[in-house]
């Protein structure tokens, strides 16, 4: 840390007003520029369903949706998200957007400690919104940035595969001329 000797922390660290739409609601909060989005969500907004596992984008525990796309909330500062729409596991649960994924994860026990689960669900949700019927390899690829120490991944892959299949057959029955 070459700048160490020169470093004098600001005694009064200034915060800035940040406004975003979180889980469908307008939210304003004061954040220090150095506060990561994951810390802001977990601490200021009390959305503790988003987890911090590595703080460097390697584990996927902190994934949220930013303007509809999965991103690491540890790899951006809250101020960068000013003006954006953010959906966390809490919002995705309440809206019902991933209820079939959650039910299938539950039925197959595709989670143990549950710490990776919100991030897994965000990745799964993004995959299925882009690829209706992914192969098992495509599912594993989509999860390649989501670390799970407990399950061995197979049940997670099974659950996502089953939901993809169920959604596809449901959309056929809904009159889709497949």
């Amino acid at each position: 840390m070459s700048e160490r000797d020169a470093y004098v922390p600001d005694e009064a660290e200034e915060t800035v007003r940040v406004r975003f739409v979180v889980n469908g609601r307008k939210v304003a909060c004061d954040a220090s520029p150095r506060e990561t989005l994951v810390d802001c969500l977990r601490t200021t907004l009390e959305l503790t369903g988003t987890h911090a596992g590595c703080e460097m984008g390697a584990c996927g525990a902190c994934l949220v949706q930013l303007d509809g796309r999965a991103v690491h909330s540890c790899l951006m500062f809250a101020v960068q998200a000013d003006g954006a729409a953010i959906d966390t596991i809490e919002g995705l649960s309440e809206s019902g957007a991933i209820s079939d994924l959650q039910a299938e994860f539950h039925r197959r026990n595709a989670l143990q400690c549950g710490f990776c689960t919100p991030g897994m669900l965000v990745s799964a949700h993004e995959l299925l919104s882009q690829t209706a019927r992914p192969t098992r390899d495509e599912i594993r690829d989509a999860l390649s940035g989501n670390y799970c120490r407990c399950t061995g991944y197979e049940a997670i892959v099974d659950a996502i595969e089953a939901v993809a299949k169920a959604r596809a057959s449901a959309s056929c029955e809904d009159g889709g001329v497949a």
Partner: peptide, 12 residues
């Protein structure tokens, strides 16, 4: 592009 990190990194 598919080899660059992981999907969520590629989104940003």
């Amino acid at each position: 592009a598919p080899f660059v990190a992981h999907p969520a990194i590629r989104n940003r």
